[in-house]
Design a protein around this nucleic acid. Structure first.
Length: 290
DNA sequence: CACACCGCTCCCT
DNA sequence: AGGGAGCGGTGTG
């Protein structure tokens, strides 16, 4: 791997909307037993309920109350119960990932060949950059064949996020190019720029099994969710739900490949590579877009 | 080959 | 609610 000279720190200003949302989520999950009221939460943040309302509206077009509802276990269970989940398109052909995604980010996907996968990124040039997002700092990685990586970093953890990603394709050549990646970030996190006519090109770098799991994730519409066991069914390996979980956890293109829409069968969130709080935030944000 | 490690699930207190 | 067993893919040696 090339030596990396440019890892910015602390590019996201403190006191952002996401920061506030995170703290609300954390308060709520800490003492979920005695559900603190909105007034109490606002008070603990040193804000008025009205201010909190404004923050959520700016962030996701959602009231705090609607957001809280969207991230409860009950709501997750309802998401899992729905029957209209599209079936997985089993072919590896390039094409739209699924029908009927009116408000969702459209993508076309291309997967690495098994030979390329074994090379662990040899001969691949990856350009990367850090950008602010509704969910904290995002690390965007692109190749000539499309978007290959999207990671998140907590404040001051930019280097750790980069290492996490770079170790996945250790033989690739990494070049800082935030001018190029900024265009991707701007589009990915702005729903007004999601359109079917010009789908976002993504490049799935993973094993055969992993790519099949990630393709299944692409079929989950915005505002919905599925379970690890359902994904296992869809890819034709109904007893492999645990392996599915591991593969979901290795998804290199967070958010765009919606691994946050995979939940435990009971509706538990069970895990997220970039932190459970972030998974809740993304699901809540999407509830405001669905 | 043999492990150990995982964003799982099910069954049993 | 929490523990244990069995599950399949992957990385390491």
């Amino acid at each position: 791997m090339n030596v990396v000279t440019s890892i910015p720190t602390d590019i996201t200003p403190e006191g952002t909307d996401y920061d506030t949302v995170c703290r609300v989520i954390e308060m709520l999950t800490e003492d979920y037993r005695d559900q603190p009221s909105l007034e109490k939460i606002a008070g603990r943040l040193g804000q008025s309920p009205t201010q909190l309302q404004k923050t959520f509206t700016r962030w996701a077009g959602l009231s705090p109350k609607a957001f809280l509802q969207a991230v409860t276990l009950d709501h997750a269970k309802r998401l899992l119960r729905q029957e209209d989940m599209p079936l997985l398109e089993t072919s590896f052909e390039v094409g739209l990932s699924g029908p009927g995604r009116l408000h969702d980010l459209f993508v076309t996907h291309e997967a690495m060949s098994p030979g390329e996968w074994k090379a662990r990124g040899a001969g691949l040039t990856v350009r990367y950059g850090f950008h602010p997002s509704p969910f904290g700092t995002a690390l965007v990685m692109i190749t000539e064949r499309g978007l290959a990586g999207l990671a998140f970093a907590d404040v001051g953890q930019e280097r750790a996020s980069f290492d996490d990603m770079a170790h996945r394709w250790p033989n690739a050549n990494y070049v800082e190019d935030s001018a190029a990646t900024a265009r991707y970030a701007a589009r990915i996190f702005n729903p007004e720029r999601w359109c079917a006519e010009e789908p976002l090109r993504i490049f799935l770098i993973g094993s055969d099994f992993q790519v099949r799991v990630w393709q299944a994730l692409l079929n989950i519409p915005l505002g919905k969710a599925t379970s690890y066991s359902k994904i296992a069914d869809e890819i034709g390996q109904p007893t492999a739900s645990r392996a599915v979980g591991a593969a979901v956890g290795r998804n290199p293109i967070s958010f765009v490949v919606p691994c946050h829409r995979a939940l435990g069968k009971s509706g538990d969130l069970t895990g997220y590579h970039w932190g459970l709080t972030r998974k809740r935030a993304i699901l809540g944000w999407e509830a405001g877009k669905a």
